[in-house]
Write a protein that binds this DNA or RNA. Structure first.
Length: 719
RNA sequence: GCGCGGUUAGCUCAGUUGGUAGAGCAUCCCCUUGACGUGGGGAGGGUCGUAGGUUCAAGUCCUACACCGCGCACCA
């Protein structure tokens, strides 16, 4: 057999990757139902399942996705080769708020219309068209990474099956008393005109003046004078001796922004004597802490700012002004009245913004739907959702890697408040609650004529929380659900531990009575070569698709794995990617050498165990793979890849092959044969071992291996 | 303020149950005309953040501190 011509030129990923992915897809082996039997003729039984964290349907592939795909594909391919019944389920996410705001932006740019101009139905049509158009883009980009996803099980968060699952989940949670409607203080985004959950708030630093105002005999501080109109309670710590002469409930007449008012003294431990003067006034309608104080003492709560950020009549002459503009004018007026004690010009304040749309958050009291996280659940032995979430990890049923994130997870649970799940946007899963007069019904479908559905939709993380089982067919009792749930691993970035991982545990432990996954593997953020975040303004963004184009998907995958310990940020530079392309080429040339020197031989030509020197080589090879197995099983893919890299390049190529040149030239026929068999055999091992990490180049080489029976992706792992 | 990490060679990072410090890249020198220049051999370079402690022995365990990063909280 002559040396295949392709090995005479350097490895060219561009010429091979597309067709190889097609072969994989057409083989059907991404689907566990089509996987071949094991070499001993038995069926694959042990399951290995991963659900893909669904990228936004309207997004494009970035390095975070690329890292995630690399890790998950390695785990899936490794386990497939180890004989497991493997499935990796793809999907995309509607990303409700983000997608709707994107479409609204386009709408406004094109026709200067808002969603209210065109109405709910027309907007949804536009959103659907936009997502359909985008969907294929992200899917094709995911495929270019070599991801061995079972596309026959593709799910979209808003498709019919998932919609049904979401409705079912809501109704069940409502019936269990976990979902309730309440008038509580929520994070309101005046720009998007919707509520936002606590976890979606992003704090941004700003430098702003800090004002000290005279409030009767007291001095109070604030950065937000515009909220102060309704402040008629003055709060101090019960044991603050400076204010011992004031008693709880005492009334004090004083001059305030728009004239004389009567303030009431409240003694509450929420006032920290060490902060400022130790005295504060409260605005219960626009501050969570103030709201809680007001509730404790049963105080009046008055709205000062409306849903668009406009001051209400309580602001007197300032009513109708936007809070942004009103602030300076209010301060001027207070100055004129001699009520400004002093101004600290450079105060660092953390502004709450909506991390999805960027609007400034204004706390408001609104009637919304909530999930009560501390309510006892009868069908779970009186435990609360918080208890269930904590137990999932404490029991070890779900292990988080790296494990220090478990502490962060507990910390989050301890601080968790009821989760506001209703959103005033249109794109998403509509809340399955129906109203007719004073009647309310909670059910998936309309109860009939005259019933009106709640106009709100659900927080996108509500449906995402169901993802491990909604993708497997829940609420129907499917075979997939039986076979593959709980899933083996959930792999994602540590930045969505709370958003998503915790919500999945919440949903699964309640609805399924089991954890959603046995392992959580958290990868780091991908940064540039100097450790900076990639951003447009720094101009340091690396596009994974450009890199695939230049160096091949295998090189990109390896660059995101090597040196990336779990949970550590990944520092990526183009140099590193180039380096791994060199490695792909090295494997290519190793193959060329081995095939050239073993022509006419196959694995079936036997293996001589009596050669003592080669015995050591074989032991070393086995030890190498045992190390690789150990690392993969403990999610140290970085070390596994490094072990293989070292062995292939610096042991096998640099030493064993170099040494073989002498033997093949000068050795006896028997020595030659032994060495040839070792080289050929080891090349098989190497290709198998590297396949999960570098699937394209190894599969391409595999085509010319004399012992090939099927695709490398379903070959058995060396042992 | 509370919590979680990190600090090891110029850079990026490993370092498994404590036993004389490792890799890749970079630098310098040398080699190489049939596996591969996307190559090979070699060299220099670290008192492992600081100060204590435990131990026969500490990069590894304990305590404190410093600096860097992150999460939560804070709009009095």
């Amino acid at each position: 057999m002559a040396m295949p011509e392709k090995f005479l030129k350097p490895y060219d990923p561009k010429a091979t990757e597309g067709s190889i992915y097609k072969e994989w897809e057409e083989s059907g082996y991404f689907n566990p139902d089509n996987l071949p039997k094991l070499p001993d003729g038995s069926e694959r039984i042990a399951p290995f399942s991963i659900v893909l964290p669904p990228p936004n349907v309207t997004g494009t592939l970035h390095l975070g996705h690329a890292a995630m795909l690399a890790v998950e594909d390695i785990l899936v391919r490794y386990n497939r080769m180890r004989g497991k019944k493997t499935v990796w389920i793809p999907g995309t996410d509607s990303a409700a708020i983000a997608t709707q705001s994107k479409v609204e932006d386009i709408l406004y740019k094109e026709s200067k219309q808002t969603r209210h101009d065109i109405g709910r139905e027309a907007l949804m049509e536009r959103v659907d068209a936009f997502t359909k158009e985008s969907e294929s883009t992200i899917i094709n980009q995911v495929k270019r990474m070599g991801s061995s996803l079972d596309w026959s099980r593709y799910a979209y968060t808003l498709d019919d099956k998932r919609y049904k699952a979401v409705m079912e989940a809501f109704v069940r949670m409502y019936n269990a008393g976990l979902i309730y409607r309440g008038n509580r203080i929520v994070n309101w985004d005046p720009k998007m005109q919707t509520t936002v959950s606590d976890d979606e708030i992003e704090r941004k630093e700003e430098t702003t003046p800090f004002y000290y105002f005279k409030y009767g005999p007291f001095v109070i501080g604030t950065v937000r004078p515009e909220t102060k109109f309704g402040d008629k309670y003055v709060v101090m710590h019960p044991s603050d001796e400076r204010y011992a002469k004031y008693t709880h409930g005492q009334q004090i007449d004083l001059e305030w922004i728009n004239g004389p008012i009567t303030a009431t003294v409240i003694k509450d431990e929420a006032a920290d004597p060490a902060v400022g003067s130790g005295v504060m006034t409260i605005t219960p309608a626009h501050s969570l802490v103030d709201f809680e104080i007001a509730q404790r003492h049963n105080l009046d709560i008055e709205q000062v700012i409306d849903e668009r950020g406009i001051l209400l009549p309580i602001a007197g002459e300032f009513a109708g002004q936007h809070i942004k503009k009103a602030r300076a004018a209010i301060v001027e007026k207070l100055k004129a009245k001699g009520l400004v004690e002093k101004v600290d010009e450079k105060y660092t304040n953390n502004l709450a913004t909506n991390s999805r749309g960027g609007g400034l958050i204004e706390p408001q009291i609104k009637k919304q739907w909530f999930i009560g996280v501390t309510r006892p659940i009868a069908e779970r032995g009186g435990k609360s959702l918080k208890d269930l979430m904590r137990e999932a990890v404490e029991s070890g049923n779900t292990k988080i890697t790296p494990d220090h994130f478990e502490k962060i997870y507990y910390h989050w649970i301890d601080n968790l408040r009821d989760w506001c799940i209703s959103r005033q946007i249109w794109f998403g899963h509509r809340i399955p609650v129906w109203y007719k007069g004073d009647e309310t019904k909670v059910q998936a479908d309309s109860p009939g004529a005259g019933w009106e559905q709640d106009p709100d939709t659900l927080d996108t993380w509500f449906s995402s929380g169901l993802w491990t089982f909604s993708t497997l067919g829940w609420p129907e009792q499917t075979d997939d659900l039986k076979n593959f749930h709980p899933t083996a691993v959930l792999e994602t970035g540590y930045d969505i531990l709370f958003f998503w991982v915790a919500r999945m545990i919440l949903m699964s432990t309640f609805l399924m009575g089991e954890v959603p996954f046995k392992n959580v593997y958290l990868h780091g953020l991908v940064r540039d070569g100097q450790g900076r975040k990639m951003s447009k303004s720094l101009g340091n963004i690396i596009d994974p698709l450009d890199m695939i184009e230049k160096y091949g998907a295998d090189a990109v995958r390896l660059s995101l794995i090597m040196g990336a310990a779990p949970g550590n940020d990944i520092k990526l530079s183009e140099d590193r990617i180039r380096g791994y392309k060199h490695f792909a080429n090295k494997i290519w040339n190793v193959t060329r050498f081995v095939l050239e020197n073993t022509q006419g031989l196959t694995l079936e030509d036997g293996f001589d165990d009596r050669n003592e020197f080669d015995k050591e080589l074989r032991q070393e090879r086995r030890a190498t793979f045992e190390e690789v197995n150990k690392h993969i099983d403990t999610f140290r893919l970085d070390l596994a890849a490094d072990t293989l890299y070292q062995y292939v390049w610096h042991r096998f190529a640099d030493e064993i092959i170099e040494d073989s040149k002498r033997i093949l030239k000068e050795g006896s026929d028997e020595e030659k044969k032994r060495r040839q068999m070792f080289l050929l055999y080891t090349l098989h091992w190497i290709l198998k071992g590297l396949h999960p990490f570098m699937p394209f180049v190894t599969e391409e080489i595999w085509k010319d291996m004399p012992s090939r029976k099927d695709l490398l992706m379903v070959e058995t792992w060396p042992a």
